[in-house]
Design a protein around this nucleic acid. Structure first.
Length: 560
RNA sequence: CGGAGUGUAGCGCAGCUUGGUAGCGUAUCUGGUUUGGGACCAGGUGGUCGAAGGUUCAAAUCCUUUCACUCCGACCA
């Protein structure tokens, strides 16, 4: 295509609400345009990239034997009431009412619809296993959309669902999908890692997230420095440890006026935060519970949720009503159940609140305290890897894919049964596999850019090659050479952009670099004098002269 | 939802304290000079200053209400 035929609104400056690099560059390169909070239009260049990503995903999904379908964005409430999620989902589910007063929602995901389809059409075990996918718009009414298309409200997702007669069959497809996802992200040219993820109540190794490594990632993921272990920080499970020390000192109460945080107390008493215990009070369906953690550790909400169900931190009033002093809560003589994290229960001679205003205790030991132990915390850098090999390293990741085994949650609720071999109805078992298509683009940019702009991986660049003729509108020789080369490239099936604008060289260079087109050929009178063109790869510093005659075969070699 | 901040031309911003003709850079249009790294000169286009109400002879500016957007938080007791 020719630049003058395209809308490529590049900008020198990014809008000041664009915080992260991918957001800034997508706006500056004219890929997207913001309509409202968390809502973006894709402009021609953005759509080209989107289509590239989708094409790779489609090819690999087809290869994996999945069938493409397309389901509606708006969905009737009845389906969600059947699955129970109409009440469970919360405010992220955008609901609305049609003119007849019927309730609907914008689909944040499509388990309900696909399960409904399966219930209708899959009747016999002989049809199983079967899987479906779609590339489609999702709507999630995010509490705080941010980072451009990274966390937007409307986004494009590839979601796939599989149906099985039994767990073995599900596991088989799950493994295929795992490999398929690796193939997809390999082809997308991304540095990614599959990591163990939280799978809710199902448990086991039945859920993996695919993370693109980038400092701006919203998730923390843990790796062993000596093995292949990799997991979301939320998922790293710890077991009971053996005590490494024994009590040495006697308990003592000290004045810690207005020192209410672990940080303040540790500094004031000149002890490590890891030698302090913090006591959190939570409100659960079964009443208030006290949780004790090492001062340098954080409470893991998912683990806590798995233990107690829905919970929230106790309010100031709640703490008061229990007779406790906020900022000075300790582990001794609590009026409620105490649950102690495994790494806190092995501490000796530690510091904790005294349950009196402005008082902490030092030299505290667990002797005589009643409690149960549990795994409550997030992993921190340097923890022992749960597989027993090496220490954990923490990196930031952007979650671009998630596969998990659903079991029969939806198929049971929505009666997706098949007639089994014995002639009786059997509830199918399901798997579910998602890729955030639009997020993949942002993630790819987070991983591939420099101070001039985007450096798209070749597989998803909007164009493979840009031809920059200098003085295209002045020099008939340059124009002739450029047009001819452009036509040769088109004939050869190369996705080529001819910058036919009446612009100075600097502007054309800057735009092509901002847009991240992998290969560039420059034509000018000076090069034409030598019968040459100039070639430069976006991701390399050096320019190269190539003879005009060999230009096409040269670029074909580069693209191969 | 809690806290903070911002709304003035497509984008980036000044003006507001102390009310008095709507400004700058960039983009865009016209003409000219330039032409291998975002050029220069000249002349234009473009804004009911987020919206509504109020005070005033007079409001971008002061007051009230409201809407939108952004950031931080919503585990660190």
């Amino acid at each position: 295509m020719k630049t003058t035929q395209l809308l490529i609104p590049t900008q020198k400056e990014a809008p000041n609400d664009a915080q992260i690099i991918s957001h800034q560059l997508m706006i500056r390169a004219g890929l997207i345009s913001k309509l409202a909070s968390g809502l973006y239009s894709y402009l021609p260049m953005g759509v080209r990239v989107l289509k590239k990503v989708e094409a790779i995903i489609r090819e690999e999904m087809d290869k994996a034997g999945s069938q493409e379908v397309l389901m509606p964005v708006s969905q009737p409430a009845e389906l969600w009431q059947q699955s129970g999620r109409w009440d469970e989902y919360g405010p992220e589910l955008l609901r609305f009412t049609d003119r007849h007063g019927r309730d609907f929602c914008m689909g944040p995901t499509h388990e309900e619809v696909i399960t409904n389809l399966a219930a209708q059409y899959i009747r016999s075990y002989k049809q199983l296993p079967m899987s479906f996918y779609q590339v489609q718009t999702k709507f999630r009414d995010e509490i705080r959309p941010r980072f451009g298309v990274m966390r937007s409200r409307e986004f494009i997702m590839k979601d796939a669902y599989s149906f099985h007669l039994d767990q073995d069959s599900l596991q088989e497809t799950y493994d295929i999908m795992h490999q398929t996802y690796c193939n997809i992200f390999d082809r997308l040219g991304l540095d990614y890692r599959p990591v163990l993820a939280d799978s809710g109540s199902i448990g086991g190794d039945s859920s993996h997230e695919f993370h693109v490594l980038a400092d701006s990632g919203e998730d923390a993921i843990c790796f062993s420095d000596e093995s292949t272990y990799a997991a979301n920080i939320e998922k790293v499970a710890f077991t009971k440890q053996a005590a490494t020390a024994s009590p040495q000192s006697a308990e003592e109460s000290v004045l810690t006026k207005k020192k209410t945080s672990i940080e303040q107390v540790a500094e004031f008493l000149n002890v490590a935060q890891s030698q302090c215990i913090k006591t959190l009070i939570i409100n659960t369906a079964e009443g208030f519970k006290a949780l004790a953690l090492r001062g340098d550790h954080e409470l893991n909400e998912i683990k806590t949720h798995n233990l107690f169900g829905e919970f929230e931190l106790a309010s100031d009033e709640d703490i008061k009503s229990l007779g406790l002093k906020k900022g000075f809560i300790g582990v001794k003589d609590l009026p409620i159940d105490l649950i102690v994290d495994y790494s806190a229960s092995v501490l000796c001679d530690f510091v904790c609140g005294a349950n009196e205003w402005d008082q902490h205790l030092t030299g505290v030991n667990w002797l005589g305290v009643e409690f149960v132990e549990a795994d409550l915390r997030n992993a921190v850098e340097g923890d022992d890897s749960p597989d027993g090999k090496g220490k954990l390293v923490i990196k930031r990741g952007i979650e671009v894919g998630h596969i998990f085994q659903l079991g029969d949650k939806y198929s049971h609720a929505m009666k997706a049964n098949v007639i089994g071999e014995s002639g009786k109805a059997v509830t199918t078992t399901m798997g579910c596999y998602g890729i955030g298509v639009t997020r993949v683009i942002a993630a790819a940019i987070e991983q591939n850019y420099d101070n001039r702009g985007i450096i798209f991986p070749a597989s998803i660049a909007p164009f493979q090659l840009v031809i920059v003729p200098i003085n295209y509108n002045k020099s008939s020789r340059v124009k002739e050479l450029a047009d001819k080369l452009y036509q040769q490239c088109l004939d050869a099936g190369i996705e080529v952009l001819l910058d036919d604008r009446k612009e100075r060289a600097g502007i054309m260079f800057a735009d092509s670099e901002l847009l991240g087109i992998p290969h560039r050929m420059v034509l000018s009178d000076t090069h034409a004098d030598n019968g040459n063109i100039e070639y430069k790869a976006r991701n390399e510093a050096d320019k190269l002269e190539v003879s005009y005659e060999q230009a096409l075969s040269f670029i074909q070699t580069k693209l191969a």
